[in-house]
Simulated assay, not measured.
Amino acid sequence: MMLFGCIALIAGCGSMGLWLAQRIRRRPEELREFLVALTLLDTEIVWGSTPLPEAFSVLKERTGAPWQSFFSELQKRLERGEPASTAWNEEIVLQSSRFCLKQEDWRVIRDIGKGLGRSDSHEQHKQLQLVSRQLSMLKDQVGIWAEKQAKMWSYLGFLCGVAGVLILI
């Protein structure tokens, strides 16, 4: 019976470590997917002269799970007549818990909302390019950090389980 308890403790702590490692690894993926969405948004605004609700509709169809919901809600809010910057910032607050991004990531993403829908397409293009460069640099830094942290949490989870077993024995 004690053997099963020891195995369960190690497995439980190890799975917690693996879960945390998986969340850490998702952060650079979410940033990468947002960069692709940002490029699509820039293309829709500048070259397609697409209104923002329609541009967000295109983005929701071309992005994955967490971003799809984000852009879908933005589209609905803009169709109801809300200002783009208000809708952008409020959706960040409402949906940030669905993502594995940190506050520093959201700070950069929040900057997009400041000029969204307020200026001409040329100015919005400049702003989207600036944010895109900032996120690209951030993504590179996060990728290196995430790999190290994910390995650490993977090992640490199992090691904590083993330490717990040793303490109980």
Rank of each mutant, 00 (worst) to 15 (best):
D105N: 13
S72Y: 09
A65H: 12
E90H: 15
D105F: 05
V93C: 07
L74E: 01
K114H: 11
Q68W: 05
S72T: 08
E82C: 02
R62W: 05
Q75W: 00
K60Y: 02
E61C: 04
G113L: 01
G81T: 11
G113K: 02
L94S: 15
P83S: 10
R107A: 08
D111R: 14
R98N: 13
V108S: 01
E79T: 05
E104N: 14
I109P: 02
P83M: 04
T63I: 04
R98K: 14
R98W: 12
E82Y: 01
F99Y: 13
S72E: 08
V108L: 06
D111V: 07
Q68A: 02
I112G: 00
V108T: 08
V108A: 09
S69G: 06
Q75D: 12
E90D: 14
S96E: 12
T86R: 14
E104P: 02
T63L: 09
E90P: 04
E79C: 06
E91I: 07
R110A: 11
W106S: 08
T63E: 03
L94A: 15
S69P: 00
R98M: 11
F70D: 00
K114R: 15
G64E: 07
S97V: 09
L101R: 04
K114L: 10
A65R: 12
F71A: 06
S72F: 08
Q75R: 05
E73Y: 07
K114Q: 10
E61S: 13
L78G: 01
K76I: 12
P83A: 13
S72L: 11
E61Q: 06
W67D: 03
E79V: 10
G113H: 00
Q95A: 10
F70M: 03
S85G: 14
E91L: 13
R80E: 08
E90V: 11
G113S: 09
D111K: 14
F99W: 06
I109A: 01
A84S: 12
R98P: 09
D111I: 03
W67M: 06
K60I: 03
A87F: 02
R107P: 02
E104T: 13
S97C: 11
T63V: 06
I92M: 09
I112H: 03
G81H: 09
G64V: 07
R80L: 15
E104V: 11
V93W: 07
T86G: 11
E104Y: 07
R62Q: 11
E73P: 04
R98F: 13
D111S: 15
L74M: 11
R80G: 03
F70E: 02
E90Y: 12
G81P: 04
Q95P: 09
E90R: 15
Q75E: 15
R77G: 02
D111T: 12
F71Q: 05
G81K: 04
F99S: 00
R110H: 12
V108H: 02
I92E: 09
A87G: 07
E79P: 00
Q103T: 14
Q75K: 09
W67Q: 02
E82T: 07
L94D: 15
D111Q: 15
Q95Y: 10
N89H: 12
W106G: 01
E91M: 15
R107T: 05
A65C: 07
W88R: 05
A65Y: 10
E104I: 09
F71G: 00
G113I: 01
W88S: 03
A65I: 12
A84V: 03
I112Q: 01
